[in-house]
Amino acid sequence: MDHMSPVEKGLRGIALSAVVLFFMFPIFWIVLMSLQTNETILRSPPSMVFEPTFRNYIAIVTGKLDSNVASMDITFMRNLWNSILLSAGSVAVALLLGVPAAYAFARHKFRGSEEVAFTLLSFRFAPPLLVLLPLSLYFQQIGLANTYIGLIWVYQLICLPLILWIVRGYFEDISPDLEHAYRIAGHSWLSTFRRIALPLAGPGIAAAGLLAFIFAWNNFIFALVLASADKQPVTVGALAFVTASGIQYGQIAAAIVLSIAPTLALALYAQRYLVEGLSLGAVKG
């Protein structure tokens, strides 16, 4: 039962509101910037009173960026599509490879299994520049340079270790007795994996997939080096707004709003799985 006094509840509410305001204010300010012209954004002192405009969003959607000095074509919507394709494709491949591997590491202990698992995890923490040069040369030799397949393959350095280690923990929290009982009833290992292990670890797999999607979406360096402009994601495509004639702050803000919208919508839609998945195994009886 909650025994807090009204004063304590009030102070707690104020503290929570302050924390939410602190973390949400940058997003709120970016949204406001996206509805202003460059002249309004750069005025001093800044003011929250202005006449909103959708010119920045129109410029991004139509691909026509107009500045005070020159006009140029941008391909931000194509970059947005590239981000969706690369992130979704990378997570799909990582789930296809990582979930069975995580189950194997959780259920079948063998000599050197921890070393192999840790080696796979170390790929996640390796500096990207460490592998970019050899990968670039290797991709040119096998014809994967500047291709979606090549980028999805490289993105496995981000997604696969993350999914492998997170999902492995969820499988380890599932009692093996349930699977043994199902196997004794005459079912195969594959049927046990599909009908027992996967449904029980479903929230954890969903949480790991969502986190991997966000990490892949936010990646910058791989696509910058290994892809040309027509295959680069939004993280690289945003550089187009920094031109010789100046920085288009309004268009950058609108691009940020559009780029975070898919991951924010996905997180809100899957928040039940995310909370349930991340809390799975936190309390053990």
Results as ranks from 00 to 15, higher is better:
residue 50 F to D: 11
residue 134 P to R: 02
residue 197 A to G: 01
residue 182 Y to I: 10
residue 277 G to R: 02
residue 274 L to D: 01
residue 83 S to M: 05
residue 150 G to R: 00
residue 146 N to T: 08
residue 233 P to G: 04
residue 197 A to W: 11
residue 110 F to N: 10
residue 29 W to M: 13
residue 4 M to Y: 05
residue 199 P to Y: 07
residue 139 F to K: 07
residue 144 L to T: 01
residue 229 A to D: 15
residue 210 L to S: 06
residue 91 V to Y: 10
residue 132 L to S: 01
residue 241 F to I: 00
residue 36 Q to L: 01
residue 159 C to G: 02
residue 169 G to M: 04
residue 201 A to N: 09
residue 190 L to M: 14
residue 283 V to G: 06
residue 185 A to Q: 12
residue 261 A to L: 15
residue 267 A to C: 07
residue 167 V to Y: 07
residue 77 M to K: 03
residue 199 P to E: 08
residue 34 S to C: 11
residue 175 S to M: 10
residue 7 V to H: 09
residue 147 T to H: 05
residue 183 R to W: 07
residue 19 V to A: 13
residue 128 P to W: 04
residue 21 L to P: 05
residue 174 I to S: 03
residue 85 L to Y: 11
residue 125 F to G: 12
residue 234 V to M: 13
residue 85 L to N: 06
residue 154 V to M: 12
residue 86 L to W: 02
residue 130 L to N: 07
residue 234 V to N: 03
residue 125 F to S: 12
residue 155 Y to F: 08
residue 153 W to R: 01
residue 97 L to I: 13
residue 141 Q to Y: 10
residue 283 V to P: 00
residue 196 I to E: 12
residue 77 M to N: 03
residue 267 A to L: 06
residue 135 L to P: 00
residue 78 R to Q: 13
residue 210 L to M: 12
residue 181 A to V: 10
residue 106 A to W: 02
residue 175 S to Y: 03
residue 212 A to Y: 03
residue 95 L to A: 09
residue 5 S to I: 01
residue 109 K to N: 14
residue 263 T to R: 01
residue 31 V to F: 14
residue 112 G to F: 07
residue 171 F to E: 08
residue 278 L to H: 04
residue 125 F to H: 12
residue 145 A to Q: 10
residue 80 L to H: 03
residue 64 K to Q: 11
residue 208 A to P: 05
residue 94 A to Q: 09
residue 69 V to W: 06
residue 169 G to Y: 08
residue 277 G to V: 06
residue 166 I to M: 15
residue 206 A to W: 00
residue 87 S to D: 01
residue 63 G to L: 04
residue 18 A to M: 12
residue 75 T to N: 14
residue 198 L to R: 00
residue 186 G to M: 14
residue 77 M to D: 00
residue 72 M to T: 10
residue 4 M to K: 14
residue 213 F to H: 07
residue 283 V to N: 07
residue 273 Y to H: 14
residue 222 F to W: 11
residue 93 V to F: 11
residue 138 Y to N: 13
residue 11 L to N: 01
residue 216 A to D: 03
residue 15 A to P: 01
residue 227 A to C: 15
residue 18 A to K: 05
residue 215 F to Y: 15
residue 68 N to L: 12
residue 211 L to Y: 09
residue 224 L to A: 13
residue 9 K to F: 00
residue 168 R to H: 06
residue 209 G to W: 07
residue 129 L to C: 09
residue 38 N to H: 09
residue 141 Q to G: 03
residue 205 I to S: 06
residue 19 V to C: 04
residue 249 Y to W: 15
residue 191 S to Q: 12
residue 16 L to A: 14
residue 222 F to G: 03
residue 138 Y to C: 07
